[in-house]
Amino acid sequence: MNRVKLGNTDIEVSRLCFGSLTMTPFQANLSIKEGAYLIKYAYSKGINFIDTAEIYENYNYIKEALKGINREDYVIATKCYAYTKDMAKESLELALKELGTDYIDIFMLHEQESIHTLRGHQGAIEYFLEAKKLGKIRAIGISTHRVEGVLGGLICDHIDIIHPIVNKEGIGIQDGNVENMLSVIKEANEKGKGIYSMKPLGGGHLIPKAQEAFNFVRNIPYINSVAIGMQSKEEIDSNINLMETGLVPDSLKNSLMSKKRRLIVADYCLGCGNCVNTCKHHGIEIIEGRAVPNENCILCSYCARNCPEFCIKII
């Protein structure tokens, strides 16, 4: 698989990034052995780039996979919500320890909304800059679901990498449409920011037209790499084929195209509202004492992280 540099950094990644959220207990609930196998399988097929986050609670999957991977050839991007130096230090030390590595290639501030939230995270950025000088971090980035978030990353000189949501229907973009998002991403890339996008299939909503949806993002020249969740060898093979040829193999088309992910809430939901307070997309609500997803749900499963009864999953 072809590799590209992320913006003005010296970090070289595959055009396809392994989105690792889908293997976690919040979604497919793979065992550590199963998840690590898929990461190594993807690497054997040319995918040298993985996206994770502190809240995914899957560092142990990646640590196990790294036992069979050339660490210097592998790029790990993770994220946290830290906004002070102490919180940033804690998040970095946790990642280094649980991943069993001496450095993180890309450390990002999770779900940034604008230049104002970035200013509110200045303490964390200052710590990451110190860590970067010490070789513990290679690049600093942000993830965002907002056009204003990309603009914030564009303005902030310390941000090397931007990880925005992009799909042909604009699913999950919180403050505009896909045209707005692409306009600011193009500007950010021209300024030297590395861009790797997320959710090309809109969190699963666009699976029935996966080929068209994936090619839309694949053909945008100012997106360096595309992160997509993968939870089986078939999905890995299909996504690689999509990236390299623009086509889903006929042998995999029926099984993959017919798959429609959905968020489910178990019968024992207490209706506490934690999920509602967590979701920034207003994609879940309490109806008659129970959480119910609605048409705004983008299947990110972040709400599951804050469910005290662990009754929310994506299947």
Rank of each mutant, 00 (worst) to 15 (best):
Q112H: 09
Q112A: 03
Q112N: 08
H116D: 08
T117R: 13
T117K: 14
L118M: 06
L118G: 04
L118Q: 01
L118C: 04
R119S: 09
R119I: 05
H121I: 00
H121W: 02
Q122G: 05
I125S: 02
I125T: 03
E126N: 07
F128G: 04
F128M: 14
L129Y: 00
E130G: 07
L134W: 08
I137L: 01
I137H: 04
R138E: 14
I140E: 00
G141E: 03
S143V: 11
T144W: 09
T144G: 11
R146S: 04
V147H: 05
E148G: 03
E148M: 15
G149R: 12
V150A: 07
G152H: 12
G152P: 14
G153S: 12
I155V: 15
C156A: 09
C156M: 07
D160F: 12
I162A: 04
I162R: 03
P164E: 06
V166H: 08
V166F: 07
G170K: 08
G170D: 03
I171M: 09
I173A: 00
Q174K: 15
D175I: 01
G176M: 11
N177Y: 06
V178Q: 06
E179D: 12
M181A: 15
L182H: 10
S183C: 13
S183F: 14
V184R: 09
I185A: 02
I185T: 10
K186L: 02
E187R: 14
A188Y: 10
N189W: 11
G192T: 14
I195T: 11
Y196H: 13
Y196E: 10
S197Q: 07
S197V: 10
K199G: 10
K199W: 14
G203Q: 08
G203H: 13
L206F: 00
L206A: 01
A210Q: 01
Q211H: 02
A213L: 05
A213G: 08
F214V: 01
